[in-house]
Write a protein that binds this DNA or RNA. Structure first.
Length: 262
DNA sequence: ATGGTGGCCCGGCCA
């Protein structure tokens, strides 16, 4: 079973690239962030033609998250499972072949003195409470998406360039560790110990070609899934070419039979 | 060089 996550930075702008990528890599589940679509505007037919059922949560213009699955999408929930605002359509969940899958888009903190930074920390705390109340760490759970946090210094191109900046501050990293302490593993790190592998590069100043990136797109899974993961890769080819997203997809393969298989 | 690019959708905001 293959699970991927990709901040597409507008599905309107990226639809041809995303469809092409799905045909090439055929993940069973693709979590998307920043669709920037309203639910009624989601191009469900285009995904259905490739065999994907989609659960989407968006208001248009900003944010928006989705899960596309070839293995069903049962019990979908938008937001934190109530009418509470999730700070603008940033979490959606569905059960795909018995795995409770979440696509999340953590708020960008902008700068350490910003109200958005405080909102980001609060959102991560809310996510932790959601996990405690709504999920079971002894089951198969995946939380995938753009966390806007680089877990440690291996995950930024130059730690010295980020002193005093968001994405790397200790409170953000501690908030991420709190999520992991609930019972999740950053499964990419089970397969790669080295630094310098990134999932996001600023569009500006040729950052991609200069290697100035960060690893902020993560696949967090419970132990039962982590133990069955066989590989984790970031497809930096998807950051190349015409009209790329500023993020590359993360792909994780698991030794998990599809539903109904022996 | 305190810039740059690209998405929203047309004047800035957001990343």
């Amino acid at each position: 079973m293959r699970i991927a996550t990709w901040n597409v930075n507008s599905l309107n702008a990226r639809l041809p690239r995303v469809l092409e990528w799905l045909e090439e890599h055929r993940p069973d589940v693709l979590c998307m962030q920043e669709t920037k679509l309203a639910d009624e505007a989601f191009p469900s037919l285009a995904f259905a033609q490739l065999g994907y059922e989609v659960v989407h949560h968006g208001n248009g213009r900003w944010n928006g998250v989705a899960i596309a699955s070839t293995l069903g999408a049962e019990n979908p929930t938008q937001g934190f499972g109530s009418l509470e605002d999730d700070y603008g359509c940033r979490i959606v969940a569905a059960t795909c072949a018995g795995i409770r899958v979440h696509s999340v888009y953590v708020p960008n903190g902008r700068s350490l003195d910003s109200e958005h930074y405080r909102a980001k920390l609060a959102w991560l705390t809310r996510l932790r409470t959601y996990l405690l109340e709504q999920c079971d760490p002894t089951r198969d759970v995946a939380v995938c998406g753009d966390f806007n946090v680089a877990p440690d210094d291996r995950d930024v191109w130059d730690p010295a360039a980020f002193v005093g900046a968001t994405h790397v501050s200790e409170p953000e990293r501690a908030a991420l560790r709190n999520l992991l302490d609930w019972g999740l593993e950053d499964v990419f790190r089970r397969h790669h110990g080295e630094g310098g592998i990134f999932s996001w590069w600023d569009y500006r100043a040729g950052d991609f070609h200069q290697g100035r990136g960060m690893r902020i797109d993560l696949v967090l899974v419970t132990k039962s899934l982590a133990e069955r993961s066989v590989s984790a890769e970031i497809d930096r080819n998807a950051r190349k070419g015409k009209k790329p997203s500023d993020h590359a997809p993360v792909i994780v393969d698991f030794e998990v039979a599809a539903a109904g298989q022996p």
